[in-house]
């Protein structure tokens, strides 16, 4: 029986015609898979403009603030502070709240918002600077957008938003990383602000659970020192966005 008449048996020689067909079939499968995958890869190519420069640690000086979330008030504006991994810097800033310090770390940046992943904090110097209070606008507004963790949004993880990032965002926020609200007003104005409670304290666990989803949130825009904040009442749970 010639190999051309025989069925394919793996441990016997393959006929020339079957070998050619198999080669064509495998090539076609490979090509189809590569084209489909290439299209998927191209579709997913944009991941935001956040940048994390891990090559060169920088040292910044300013007044450390614990509330609403750890940050450094510098002459160039506020810099959010975070520990390595998915941990906030509450532990390290608790004892230096209101003091002038030098903080060394790697910079995360997106637009004008900056953060520092801390590697070292100097001993506090000088007298304690008085507490900063929260100042909120009189009117409540509704924003449509997403609750994010600031570290990933600023470049620690790209993309650091959307449903695939939800679990990571919740993990970061539960770890104490400052939450951001990135969204638009009804008039179309883009808002990027640290999310907090109206008294300047951190937001509740219930609100954190909405991270990674497109939601409508009602609250008031304001400032906490030099930090732009969006204050949401603990009971004002976000609603699903359209």
């Amino acid at each position: 029986m010639s190999t051309d008449e025989r069925i394919y048996v793996g441990y016997l020689p393959m006929s020339g015609r079957l070998r050619t067909f198999t080669l064509i079939a495998v090539s076609a499968l490979l090509l189809a898979g590569l084209v489909a995958s290439g299209i998927v890869a191209y579709t997913l190519r944009r991941s935001g403009t956040g940048q994390w420069d891990t090559s060169q640690p920088v040292t910044l000086s300013g007044v450390a603030r614990l509330r609403p979330y750890p940050h450094l008030e510098t002459l160039d504006g506020p810099v959010l502070l975070a520990e390595p991994g998915k941990h906030g810097a509450q532990g390290r800033t608790a004892n230096i709240d209101g003091h002038e310090v030098m903080v060394t770390g790697t910079t995360l940046m997106r637009g004008t918002l900056r953060a520092l992943e801390i590697t070292e904090v100097s001993a506090p110097s000088g007298e304690r600077v008085g507490p900063t209070s929260i100042e909120l606008g009189a009117d409540e507004i509704t924003l449509l957008g997403e609750i994010l963790d600031s570290k990933c949004y600023l470049g620690a993880m790209k993309p650091g938003d959307g449903p695939t990032h939800k679990a990571c965002a919740i993990l970061c926020l539960r770890g104490g990383i400052a939450p951001l609200f990135v969204g638009e007003t009804e008039a179309g104005e883009v808002i990027v602000a640290v999310l907090c409670s109206p008294d300047g304290s951190p937001v509740s666990e219930e609100i954190i659970a909405f991270a990674g989803e497109t939601v409508r949130v009602r609250g008031r825009i304001g400032t906490f020192g030099s930090l732009q904040v969006f204050a949401v009442a603990p009971g004002a749970l976000p609603a699903a966005g359209d």
Partner: peptide
């Protein structure tokens, strides 16, 4: 796939390497 993802991304907008 890794090559297409990185090369077609606008500068600075590529996903994190583990992603």
């Amino acid at each position: 796939l890794v090559g297409v993802s990185i090369m077609t991304s606008p500068p600075g907008e590529s996903a994190s390497p583990p992603i």
